[in-house]
């Protein structure tokens, strides 16, 4: 059986908020490393991989692997009843048909108990190869979100080029074109506001801005975002949490 307690309900609320518009039904795989999730959108263009590690839970017990088949819209309805600071306890039997969620407020004078019906989801699991990326860029997540939003008003696609000078996002659309270049700037005082680039080789790829804007819903999970690129392989966008992560993979657009 599973029993997992989060000190802050906001952890799970934010994660579900970040992925609910990309995938609808997915398995939360509970095992001794924590709770993991891997799901692709319907078009198989994007994949989200999430891991809430055991260390992030105030209490974590999982006797054997349990797959919780969950509709994220339904889960979000239940999570709306949890205040960010509430302690959240998840419980499920082995091969469960429901997930129990208990929210307790910090004054310990309100306890809310919900059962969420589970679904049978036979999801194919993808093998994501370990990749040495040509370029790994770390920047403020708000900065990346702003660039994606601004350029998505001009075009459906963005060309991302990483060189030792910096990272350049450029696009061309019906009304014109735009480009944003971020130079390497470690910002020693406030590292989370800096932009750092590790370059093995220059890379240049094109991606759909619709998906990038969607991924940026996860910006609330971390002040920084790490973007990993290599020519002709999917883009990796990672939001690191204290005890886990949310990663998005996006297939490139192969142009003429």
């Amino acid at each position: 059986m599973l029993e997992a307690r989060l000190e802050q309900s906001s952890v799970l609320k934010k994660v579900v908020d970040a992925i609910k518009d990309l995938v609808q039904d997915c398995n939360f795989d509970c095992n001794d490393s924590g709770i993991q999730l891997q799901a692709m959108d319907n078009s198989h263009v994007a994949l989200v991989a999430m891991h809430l590690k055991t260390e992030g839970f105030a209490l974590y017990r999982c006797d054997r692997n349990i797959a919780l088949g969950i509709n994220l819209v339904s889960l979000q309805k239940v999570l709306r009843a949890a205040q960010n600071e509430d302690v959240m306890t998840l419980k499920a039997e082995d091969s469960p048909d429901a997930l129990s969620l208990v929210f307790e407020n910090s004054e310990n004078d309100r306890i809310s108990e919900y059962d969420l019906k589970l679904m049978d989801i036979d999801q194919e699991h993808l093998g994501i190869p370990e990749t040495e990326y040509g370029a790994t860029v770390k920047m403020p997540s708000a900065e990346f979100q702003r660039i994606c939003r601004d350029l998505s008003l001009l075009s459906e696609s963005v060309a991302i080029e990483a060189t030792k000078e910096g990272i350049k996002f450029s696009c061309t659309g019906d009304i014109g074109k735009g480009a944003v270049t971020l130079r390497q700037n470690p910002n020693v005082e406030k590292p989370e506001l800096g932009t750092t680039i590790e370059l093995q080789e220059p890379v240049a790829l094109t991606f759909s801005l619709k998906y990038l804007v969607n991924f940026c819903k996860a910006s609330g999970l971390s002040n920084t975002v790490t973007i990993s690129l290599s020519n002709e392989v999917p883009l990796l966008i990672e939001y690191e949490m204290e005890h886990g992560y949310v990663r998005f993979y996006l297939a490139p657009k192969i142009g003429d």
């Binding site: 198989h44 999917p234 993979y249």
Partner: peptide, 14 residues
Amino acid sequence: EHGQETLDAFFGSL
């Protein structure tokens, strides 16, 4: 317009 690839071309299903 660029052709959008899918992840199946890059990630094998287990």
